[in-house]
């Protein structure tokens, strides 16, 4: 029971982590709480659905319920969602950033953008649920008393690989370093010759791509619906803030902790309240350690 809850928590946590990375970058590099980020998760899932609708989910490979087509769909969705995020920035956020509007009007706008994005999904696909594949899978007993579907194990593995790659990218690449520089001080980054708009663009691409990946994983376990991202919104913010805004490792650790909190809570409280757990975590963090586990103390702002 406990072991299974932990395993489920880690899986949920991995998906939350992928989404939380973008939220965390948004808070620190783009300097606003992007409440539309959850809709990138949803859009990523549905864009992959478009690909799967045409190409099919592929013949199940080994124990997995899908074939290479779904991986291709994920890449397709990742790229398009990254571009979508950037286009929204050009249409809305960049204009506000460059105007003398109140900084929080970005957050208002993000909510507006989220409303539009979410309901355009309803407009196109309706309220119903979709599946990438209807293949049935048999859970494997990975440890005594702990069962996981092969797809879930695949998700964990791929998440680990992608997060590790992102970490290397941020640590060693020129753009990654510029992103971290801008996270600390946009004005000093400018003085170093960093082009702010280019870093912003990369941040959106990466955030959008990872959000799409989270969306595909959510859709795989097991279905897509228009509120799939929105329902994750608090968890994403709780994870990003718990980890410390701007920290990749923080977002991942935060995601895992929030996922665990959600799934372990079921042992103590009614499952109906499970989705309130991220909020509880969030309140505790804001109260006791607003800079998060891996964050720097908030400077002047």
């Amino acid at each position: 029971m406990l072991g299974q809850a932990i395993a489920d928590g880690i899986l949920t946590g991995a998906i939350i982590a992928l989404g939380a990375i973008g939220v965390s970058f948004g808070l620190q590099i783009l300097r606003f709480a992007n409440f539309a980020h959850s809709e990138l998760v949803t859009w990523g899932a549905y864009l992959a659905l478009v690909f799967v609708t045409f190409a099919g989910p592929g013949t199940p490979t080994g124990p997995l319920s899908f074939g290479w087509q779904l991986i291709a769909a994920m890449v397709f969705a990742g790229v398009l969602t990254g571009v979508l995020a950037w286009v929204v920035d050009i249409l809305v956020f960049r204009r506000l950033r460059n105007s003398d509007a109140h900084p929080l009007s970005m957050v208002f706008a993000a909510f507006g953008v989220a409303l539009v994005m979410r309901h355009v999904v309803v407009l196109i696909w309706g309220h119903g649920s979709y599946f990438y594949t209807r293949e049935l899978q048999i859970a494997l007993e990975v440890l005594p008393g702990i069962r996981m579907l092969p797809d879930q194990i695949f998700i964990l593995g791929l998440t680990f690989v992608v997060v590790a790659a992102m970490h290397l990218y941020l640590t060693y690449s020129r753009t990654g370093m510029a992103m971290r520089a801008m996270a600390e001080s946009p004005s000093l980054a400018r003085v170093c010759g960093v082009q702010v708009e280019s870093v912003v663009r990369w941040t959106w691409f990466i955030s959008g791509g990872l959000a799409a990946m989270a969306g595909v994983f959510l859709g795989l376990t097991p279905q897509l619906h228009p509120e799939m991202g929105f329902n994750l919104l608090l968890a994403l913010f709780a994870a990003a803030i718990l980890g410390g805004a701007g920290s990749l490792i923080g977002a991942v650790v935060g995601g895992l902790l929030v996922g665990l909190a959600e799934n372990l809570s079921v042992l103590f409280i009614s499952p109906g309240y499970k989705t309130a757990m991220p909020f509880l975590v969030l309140l505790l963090v804001l109260f006791f350690r607003p800079q998060g586990l891996f964050g720097e103390k908030e400077g002047s702002r």
Binding site: S105, F111, G112, L115, H119
Partner: peptide
């Protein structure tokens, strides 16, 4: 009906964004 409801909500979202952009 679901699509109709969605349009109604999209209008609210657009109103919010457009007001912020063009009539702050």
């Amino acid at each position: 009906a679901a699509q109709g409801g969605a349009i109604q909500v999209i209008l609210i979202g657009l109103m919010l964004v457009l007001a912020l952009l063009f009539r702050p």
